[in-house]
Computed example of a mutant assay.
Amino acid sequence: MQEKPFCFSIGHLLPYSMSDSNTTDITNPSTFILLGIPGLEMAHVWISIPFCIMYALAILGNFTILFIVKREPSLHGPMYYFLCMLAITDLVLCTSIMPKTLSIFWFSYREINFSACLTQMYFLHCFSVMESGIFVAMALDRYVAICDPLRHSTILTNPVVAKIGLAVMLRGGIFVLPYLLLARQWPYCSNKIIPHTHCEHMAVVKLACADTRLSNYYGLFVLFSVIGLDVFFITVSYTQILRAIFSLPTKDARLKTLGTCSSHLCAILAFYISALFSSLTYRFGHNVDQHFHVLIANVYLLVPPMLNPIIYGVRTKQIWDRLLQLFTHKGT
Rank of each mutant, 00 (worst) to 15 (best):
G219H: 01
G219N: 07
L220C: 10
L220I: 08
F221A: 15
F221M: 13
L223C: 12
F224V: 14
F224W: 14
S225I: 14
S225G: 05
V226T: 08
I227P: 01
I227T: 09
G228T: 05
G228Y: 03
L229A: 13
L229V: 12
L229E: 10
V231P: 02
V231I: 14
F232M: 14
F232A: 14
F232S: 12
F232C: 15
F233V: 14
F233Y: 12
F233I: 13
T235D: 03
T235G: 08
T235Y: 08
V236K: 02
V236M: 06
V236D: 01
S237R: 00
S237G: 02
Y238T: 05
Y238M: 03
T239L: 10
T239Q: 06
Q240F: 11
Q240N: 05
Q240A: 09
Q240G: 00
I241C: 08
L242G: 11
L242R: 11
R243E: 11
R243S: 12
R243Y: 12
A244P: 05
I245E: 06
S247D: 12
S247H: 13
L248D: 02
L248K: 04
P249M: 06
P249E: 07
P249D: 07
T250P: 06
K251D: 12
K251F: 13
D252Q: 12
A253P: 06
A253C: 07
A253L: 13
R254D: 07
R254S: 07
L255R: 06
L255V: 10
L255M: 10
L255Y: 07
T257S: 15
T257F: 08
T257Y: 07
L258Q: 12
L258M: 15
G259F: 05
T260A: 09
T260D: 10
T260M: 10
C261R: 05
C261W: 05
C261P: 05
C261K: 04
S263T: 09
H264T: 14
L265V: 15
C266I: 13
C266D: 05
A267F: 04
A267C: 11
I268H: 00
L269G: 04
L269R: 01
L269Y: 09
L269D: 02
A270W: 02
A270P: 03
F271K: 01
Y272M: 02
S274G: 03
S274M: 10
A275N: 01
L276I: 08
F277Y: 10
F277T: 15
S278P: 04
S278A: 14
S279H: 04
S279M: 06
L280I: 10
L280K: 03
L280E: 02
L280D: 00
T281G: 10
Y282F: 13
Y282M: 11
R283H: 13
R283D: 11
R283Q: 13
F284L: 11
V288M: 08
V288E: 01
Q290G: 06
Q290E: 12
Q290D: 11
H291F: 15
H291V: 08
H291M: 12
F292Y: 13
H293Y: 11
H293G: 00
H293L: 03
L295P: 04
I296S: 03
N298K: 01
N298C: 10
V299G: 01
V299M: 08
V299Y: 07
Y300F: 13
L301D: 02
L301A: 07
L301R: 04
L302A: 11
L302Y: 00
L302P: 03
V303P: 02
V303Q: 01
V303G: 01
P304K: 01
P304H: 02
P305Q: 03
P305M: 03
P305G: 04
P305T: 02
